[in-house]
Amino acid sequence: MSTSQDFPTRKSSWKRFDVTVLYVFDLLGTFAFAVSGAIAAVRKKMDLYGILVLATVTAVGGGTIRDVLVGRVPPFIFRDITYFFVSITAGLLVFFFHKYVERRFKLLLIMDAIGLGTFTVIGISVGLKFDIGYFGAVFLGVMTATAGGMMRDVLQGEVPLVLQREIYASACIAGGLIFVCLDILNIVPDINVFISAAAVIAIRMISITKNWNLPKPKI
Rank of each mutant, 00 (worst) to 15 (best):
D131P: 06
A198N: 05
F76V: 06
M205F: 10
A32R: 04
G50E: 00
I114T: 02
I191W: 15
A198K: 01
D153C: 05
Q164G: 12
Y83S: 05
R103H: 11
G61F: 07
D112N: 08
Y23K: 06
I203N: 02
R72W: 13
M111C: 11
I114G: 01
D26A: 12
F33H: 06
R165T: 13
C181L: 14
T64S: 12
I122S: 15
I39V: 10
F84G: 01
S196W: 07
I178W: 06
L54A: 03
W14M: 00
F95Q: 04
D18T: 14
D6M: 12
I122T: 15
F139I: 15
A169S: 12
V57P: 00
D153V: 02
V200S: 07
K99A: 03
D18W: 15
T89A: 14
G115C: 09
A41Q: 01
F78E: 02
F84M: 09
F96G: 02
L27R: 03
V126C: 04
N213W: 13
F135Y: 13
L163Q: 09
R165D: 15
K129M: 14
I77H: 07
V53H: 01
D190H: 15
K106T: 09
A145S: 12
T30S: 09
G141T: 02
D67N: 08
D131F: 12
L22F: 15
F135S: 10
H98C: 00
I184N: 11
L116A: 05
L109V: 09
M1C: 09
A199M: 12
D183V: 05
N192R: 15
F119L: 06
L27F: 11
R103V: 00
T20Y: 13
L109E: 12
V200W: 10
L93T: 02
Q5Y: 11
A41K: 02
A137I: 05
G29S: 07
M150I: 08
Y49T: 00
I208Y: 11
K129N: 14
P217W: 14
A202P: 06
A113R: 05
I201R: 03
K129I: 05
S12E: 13
V159S: 11
V21A: 14
S196R: 02
V193N: 10
V162A: 14
I51P: 00
I203V: 08
A34F: 08
A59T: 03
G37A: 04
K15I: 06
V24G: 09
F17G: 10
N186Q: 12
V42Y: 00
I173K: 07
V200T: 03
S125K: 01
I178M: 08
M205W: 10
T209D: 14
V86W: 03
R72G: 07
T56Q: 00
C181E: 12
S2A: 12
I195K: 02
S4A: 10
L27C: 10
A34G: 09
F78P: 04
I191F: 15
G63W: 04
I191G: 07
I65F: 14
T20G: 11
S87Q: 03
L128A: 08
S87D: 01
R72Q: 14
F76L: 05
L116M: 15
K218Y: 15
